[in-house]
Design a protein around this nucleic acid. Structure first.
Lengths: 347, 347
DNA sequence: TTGTACGCGTTATCAA
DNA sequence: TTGATAACGCGTACAA
């Protein structure tokens, strides 16, 4: 037998023979052609044969012949994080609406994985690669990712980022700094004067952008946040717990806990409870992201809303129709949503 | 110019020419060969050239030549649902560990979409298709899905389901019935005597399996649950809200609310709160799934734990190494986890 | 061990 | 409008 693993998948030649037409005609009848058209009766006969044989075009062969695939590549860190899941879900929908496949890869905690993944997607000759999420301030990564990413782009591949910076690529940006600054203003308006900032990892640029914008605006409002009140840890639930435990052990004084992501806020909430700190009576709490499924957390979490549902479609459009030279850019605004976790506080 | 959209991607021929060897040697040096081996110095020279030119093998061409792709297809309903997200995340990890790509498709609420998606994945010639989730008791769907699925399988494609039944395919099964029965026993032990069951959609076989096993075991324990106490709605957060509102309007009497999924339980919780029903003082509440991110819901939710982390790897192994004839099957047990939402209740 | 040449399934070019 | 045929990039029998 042949070396093919899959047996007896009917090919276009089979269809053509069955319909008594040439391969070319069959191709035009089934998958269309821009320049040629095919007679009505012949076309019908071909379609009949295709249905009868159960013909399904081979996407790989089409990709070869056409020189382009119908696939986009999406890279997220962790689908378990509802923020990434929401974006991935939107991307899957957007892709299907445009009759595109979506190859999705996660990088987990392995920072190096991202450049491997980009190289792999490059191999697949995906139409576009969309990088979601966290940009690490790590020169090694920049270089390493840079090699595979640059190679991909130089060959005409489209690379778009969401919520992270990568030089020379079109991007969907989050107005994180503005959102953070507004959150600062809102908190001050509510009467908070002594925030404890869970800043996330120092090398995580999104986290840093958010936290430093918050700290800066606070300073402008006359509230200096010293280093002891800026705790660094992972941007995860566990990170929130760790940071909070540190705060408890250091017996810090504060009136609101400001976390740089929702899941981190959750971790902090959990640890606070364990330590007998009542939220929001003893201290307010804020997150970042407005993850839908956390809606039932008690008390309802004040956060900065990121419209994840729009991000995917924006990025895909940018990837497909944008300039592709790094000048294309959409900035999505993020806005504070005040809820029960930060009630009005009078000193 | 050529008709190729992507410009100047170096091919293996380029590499071979640059290294001064034949195409075959270059192929063997870079992508290996089972039968032939290649001289050390030549191999090195080829690798040098490849690196220099920035060569990346064309996965589509490889797929054609080899007659098989390195891609698996995964179909879930909704990545926004943490249950599916957890499985998808596990699948992405499992795939990467096995050096496979994962193309992921969501079907959303569109029931028909699933058969289109299967057909599309068939076109991609994916090595295996993994169908996650909800099986709908819908003959049309069976037929429609059956056509594309059967066609795929007949050609040697591997199809595996997780948590749903599809005739003739290997499956990772959840012991939903056993888990539900155990939940029933636990609730009775805790003193609950009058459950309100949010059964999910009547055509949703997973939901039906869970709810009927629960009702049956309850009956065996001497507690009959009549129809008024079995409310049908979507297996989503919104579904939980709707069902709960119905219960409130009907002024039903009950001591515990039993929802067929965690997100549904959440919706019920939310609506209960709105209606002034205190959980767990006025009524207990249970879910199904043990979604990690709901860990902070108050009160902590009693649920039936589904080990999503293992599901993906099991399914992938089954797809890759299983019999593929429908006889392969792994059953994963699910077990009740009693938490604060169902405290001991003395009549 | 290396090279030659064919085939994978499809689209696109060119001629009829 | 149709048909024959050359690509597309790679793997692998087969020959050297």
């Amino acid at each position: 037998m042949s070396r093919r693993a899959r047996s007896a998948a009917p090919t276009l030649s089979d269809v053509a023979r069955h319909a008594g037409v040439s391969l070319a005609t069959a191709s035009r009848a089934i998958n269309g052609s821009t320049t040629r058209t095919v007679g009505a009766e012949l076309a019908e006969r071909v379609r009949q044969s295709a249905a009868e044989l159960g013909y399904a075009p081979d996407a790989n062969a089409q990709a070869m012949a056409r020189g382009a695939t119908q696939t986009i590549g999406v890279v997220v860190h962790d689908l378990t994080d509802p923020y990434f899941a929401a974006i991935a879900d939107g991307m899957a929908t957007a892709a299907r609406e445009r009759r595109l496949f979506m190859t999705l890869a996660t990088t987990g905690n392995n920072i190096d994985a991202i450049s491997d993944v980009v190289a792999a997607l490059d191999s697949m000759r995906v139409r576009a690669i969309i990088l979601v999420g966290a940009r690490w301030k790590d020169d090694d990564l920049t270089d390493s990712l840079g090699v595979s990413a640059t190679r991909y782009v130089e060959r005409g591949g489209r690379l778009v980022t969401i919520g992270m910076e990568f030089p020379g690529t079109d991007a969907v940006r989050l107005a994180n700094a503005t959102g953070s600054a507004q959150l600062a203003e809102n908190l001050v308006d509510l009467g908070y004067r002594n925030p404890l900032v869970l800043v996330g990892p120092v090398r995580h640029s999104t986290a840093v952008t958010r936290s430093s914008a918050f700290v800066d605006r606070m300073a402008e409002l006359g509230i200096e946040i010293n280093d002891s009140h800026q705790i660094s840890s992972d941007l995860t639930r566990a990170g929130g717990e760790v940071a909070m435990r540190l705060a408890v052990e250091s017996e810090l004084d504060y009136d609101v806990i400001v976390a740089m992501s929702d899941v981190m806020a959750l971790g902090a909430l959990s640890e606070a409870r364990r330590s007998g700190i009542r939220i929001p009576q003893d201290a307010g709490l804020t997150g970042f992201g407005d993850v839908t499924h956390l809606i039932d957390v008690m008390p309802a979490l004040t956060t900065v809303r990121v419209p994840t549902d729009r991000l995917a479609a924006l990025a895909l459009d940018l990837a497909l129709n944008g300039p592709g030279d790094g000048t294309g850019s959409v900035t999505v605004s993020v806005t504070p949503v005040i809820r029960e976790s930060t009630p009005l506080r009078r000193p």
